[in-house]
Design a protein around this nucleic acid. Sequence first.
DNA 1: TCACCTTGTTAATGAGCGTTAACGCATTTC
DNA 2: GAAATGCGTTAACGCTCATTAACAAGGTGA
Lengths: 198, 198
Amino acid sequence: MLPWPCEPTPPTRREQILKEAARLFAERGFHGVGVDEIGAAVGISGPGLYRHFPGKDAMLAELLVGISGRLLTGGKRRVAEADGDPEAVLDSLIEGHIDFAIDDRPLITLHDRELDRLRDSDRKLVRQLQRQYVELWVEVVRQVYPGLPEPTARSAVHSVFGLLNSTPHLGRRGRCRGGGATAELLHRMARGAFGAAG
Amino acid sequence: MLPWPCEPTPPTRREQILKEAARLFAERGFHGVGVDEIGAAVGISGPGLYRHFPGKDAMLAELLVGISGRLLTGGKRRVAEADGDPEAVLDSLIEGHIDFAIDDRPLITLHDRELDRLRDSDRKLVRQLQRQYVELWVEVVRQVYPGLPEPTARSAVHSVFGLLNSTPHLGRRGRCRGGGATAELLHRMARGAFGAAG
DNA sequence: TCACCTTGTTAATGAGCGTTAACGCATTTC
DNA sequence: GAAATGCGTTAACGCTCATTAACAAGGTGA
């Protein structure tokens, strides 16, 4: 039936496909990669993908909706958990975003690059999730820096996203060893950028 | 017949094409826009473009080589001019990059997004120009923050590029009025980020 | 053993698109 | 004035590529 209610199990075929599709889309763009390549990346051939997805668009849609939703829910969770000290909440948000940007570089790349290839309804949904995520940050930032006008805070948040999402351009040192160093550097720079904005 | 026979020579057809192609490529991706659309954007139709460019690839190549070259020469000029005070040089580099990111948002978007659609020779050239530009920054940053190891400085530079290149995500307020405000905010945040890295 | 569902395969279809061909028409040049 | 050149046009070609059709094999349950 529906592949939803099960989570543990080794990576299902659907998940393999999504992972490889994310990598390929990030590398060569949505239109730059064909279904045959995606199929080959998971050991099946072209049209076999249609047993798991209604179409190529659906893969991109699921990837983008998935990442936007996970970012938002993760952010909400962190805000709820560390409720009280705004500084701690902001640090937690930054940490969560960095973890995501380091673990899922392809998705981070896709997330602000291939949004316009979605069907209207999906694009609207993704944009709504992204906006809520930004507003979450804006609120917290304005609590830490009360003097900051809202438009300025929003610009600052977008800019810090640009900073944090630069992980795909950074060397791959983050993966093998000392990944914590890259994460810590990004964290410090984000805080420095916010501090200079306020 | 020409509406501007006066001093600044009206934009030649080639320039119109490049400008519109940059905008369209940035909006929908290189593979997402057809030659007919580019032609329509400048008032001619599809194949008419081939009187000005040998092909669609050539437009992208000229755009990317152009922007990389201009960034590099502009950076070199600023380093040469304000020679002496590293702080002033860094501020000048930041200012130049921001001017560019605000004036030519489409090109900034393209520049780190569609590199892989180029022929090998062009891609190699663009990458070389980009690397030189990064090294220019790394040197200056290490003069301002002497304790910073080179790999860390390089990561910091890439991240600040991510921050400065976020202009396409910022509201269009930068254009109409108070554009200086956005530029100044980005400048402060960049300095703050570097400061926190060092 | 016999359906039957799942998950593949390869071949065919049909649309989109970059590119080229063939032609028209000002304007310039000899 | 005729030829050449610059700059367009529309029509056609050919290739790529997402999608569908038709078919096959392994596993499961009655």
